[in-house]
Design a protein around this nucleic acid. Sequence first.
DNA 1: TTTAATCTTCATCACATCTTCATACCAACG
DNA 2: CGTTGGTATGAAGATGTGATGAAGATTAAA
Lengths: 219, 219
Amino acid sequence: MEDEPIIREVLVEYMEIAGYSVFVATDGEEAMRLVDHENLDLAILDIMVPKYNGFEVLNYIRLSHNKHIGVLMLSALDDVNSQVHAFNDTADDYIIKPVSPIILLKRMETLLRRVKSQISWQEGLKIDHEGYRALYNGIPLKLTLSEFLLLQVLYQSPHRVFSREQLILNIFNEDYIGNDRIIDAHIKNLRKKLPFNCIKTIVGVGYQFQKEEAYEVKK
Amino acid sequence: MEDEPIIREVLVEYMEIAGYSVFVATDGEEAMRLVDHENLDLAILDIMVPKYNGFEVLNYIRLSHNKHIGVLMLSALDDVNSQVHAFNDTADDYIIKPVSPIILLKRMETLLRRVKSQISWQEGLKIDHEGYRALYNGIPLKLTLSEFLLLQVLYQSPHRVFSREQLILNIFNEDYIGNDRIIDAHIKNLRKKLPFNCIKTIVGVGYQFQKEEAYEVKK
DNA sequence: TTTAATCTTCATCACATCTTCATACCAACG
DNA sequence: CGTTGGTATGAAGATGTGATGAAGATTAAA
């Protein structure tokens, strides 16, 4: 996306000569449609565009099926706040216009190098954030609200270890007063309902969502 | 690396407050030494520094054992050639000075997010600090907490010899009272679980981590 | 109000992990 | 060749933590 047609033409041509397939959207809505219907590796988002702005598209991407794609924000705004906003929303780069086409291309390729080497660890388990549902191969699991919230937090940051305290903060309001061990109880119930054992205990630390099984100890 | 001491101080403090371990080099040679002797996740390279410049350090990194780390080039040079040069040499970002510390931090974190997500498939032994995991060729080893912490400390500074006392301070709370030899026991158990004999005993002194390439694979 | 679902606490148990210790081993040295 | 100082190792006991089921409390639904 790029709000000035002529510059956009140049950039697109540049990228196509370099061997990339390029899709162009003229507003945020169209961009979202591309996210849904094309298998993108990278998105270049102009912030100031009609319908939905770049930040909104960015957030849409990160909640989408293709959330791992590289996102490069493009803007005439040189202020710190806008940049911090972009990075906080997990943009991968922020480029201030006007930009030399060659530098844009180099930054694209640099990001692609990192993006391409990622693997998607997700398999059958999906979280429907809006619907408060966890789906396994499309079939919803019957979770209580606490169980769902617990799974959601763990699932969103796979392999990150959350202490019981952190989980309590994430799941309940921060004014919760009660025993740490409430987490144990919910974990127990959640584990029973999950089709595979993906919640691992880190003794003395907390719990994490994990995909791979660990090596067995050699004898 | 940063050629102006005062600015560097501010940045380092900023990063440490944000929770990162920071090593500072004042010239290219020292930077290369850090690449060899610390297990870095990210390098911020000033281009104009003594002994070896930032580009030379970048190339050194990409040919090194830690070639996958994120590299962020920092320079007062605003010209296209220098930037293209950096990206061609597979830098991951190029920031023009002066830069707001918060933006530098955000760009660091953004890059780290991409670097870290590559951990899981990288060859060899990798430590996932956040996830309390040690990965061998992407597959987690089943370590206890003490074993993990032990490996983490040793791995963080390869070739540095740690006394039992130092290791106890790093692994347990400082109020630990007990036999030194607890370390021996954990080392023994840890060695059994590691695919390489990478923990070497320095008789009369302590233990050190040796980089795996120097060793034979266990049968 | 009654009923059902969900949350929360608690006591008990099982097991992972830690720690010590005794013995075996090894290298250096006289 | 034996002694010394140090480490490796396996076993066994001690400790601590999490798992679990039951039961009461709370909340929501009927």
